[in-house]
Design a protein around this nucleic acid. Structure first.
Lengths: 122, 122
DNA sequence: CTTAGGAACCTTGCATGGCAAGGAACTCGA
DNA sequence: TCGAGTTCCTTGCCATGCAAGGTTCCTAAG
């Protein structure tokens, strides 16, 4: 009886992985807009606060890519106990790109909302 | 001077491709919820109405996958002139999955809105 | 000193899926 | 017959999430 919902859950899991592509990059840049963060902090912050699941194997390569693309920059500093931390901040280029992403996201989000509402006009 | 915005546009283009992953599947299922559609019609409908760019090379493999997964089913019928059309409709499984996707989408959308608004609480 | 464990970072290899490009089959009008 | 429009499909490449495993540093217990 609960069969359908279990299967559905497995399939939505695969779907959500795909849905995160692009969203994650956006979410990280948005988070950094609020000030510097280090990698591990982004993992816990996005997972607990924004309810966006972000394993370490995802975020570190992504941060490296964003840094290589010149959108963010990092600075290594010691934290309190544990290994030293790599603090990331947005670069001016990162700010520009983020500003360009925002209307794109809003448009996509609005389009999906329209489909959700079942609009039939064109 | 316009350098930054041009580069930003190129990069957002790549980003948007990734962003569509997952969203497209959702958008197609949502569209089919409103009744049967054939493939080419989905291309033009999503592109013009929902402003979600969907090239043919994207949609046909996607429709085949959705059909293989049993979420949609197709029926070949002649249209008016031109090649015969393949009309797609949701299966009961597709409806179930779609219903499961909706809250997930809303949660993700809400999370991103929260980041956009610059929330700092946790 | 040694061991344990946690914090923080990174790498490898695989699977998924968008999409540009090319092509095929059908219809209809010139 | 020939082109053009409609509709569908396939191939091959590329970007990227992520599970699994590893490294380094620090602190605390034994």
């Amino acid at each position: 009886m609960a069969r359908n919902s279990i299967e559905a859950h497995e399939e939505t899991a695969r779907w959500e992985v795909q849905l995160r592509k692009g969203v994650l990059e956006f979410a990280i840049l948005l988070t950094l807009r609020g000030g510097e963060h280090y990698g591990f902090e982004l993992v816990t912050s996005l997972t607990s606060k924004a309810r966006i699941n972000v394993p370490e194997g995802t975020i570190y390569p992504l941060l490296l890519r964003l840094a290589k693309d010149g959108l963010i920059k990092s600075e290594m500093r010691d934290g309190e106990g544990g290994a030293p931390r790599k603090y990331y901040t947005l670069t001016p280029r990162g700010v520009v790109l983020l500003e360009a992403m925002i209307p794109r996201w809003k448009q996509l989000s609005t389009s999906v909302e329209g489909l959700l509402a079942g609009e039939e006009n064109d």
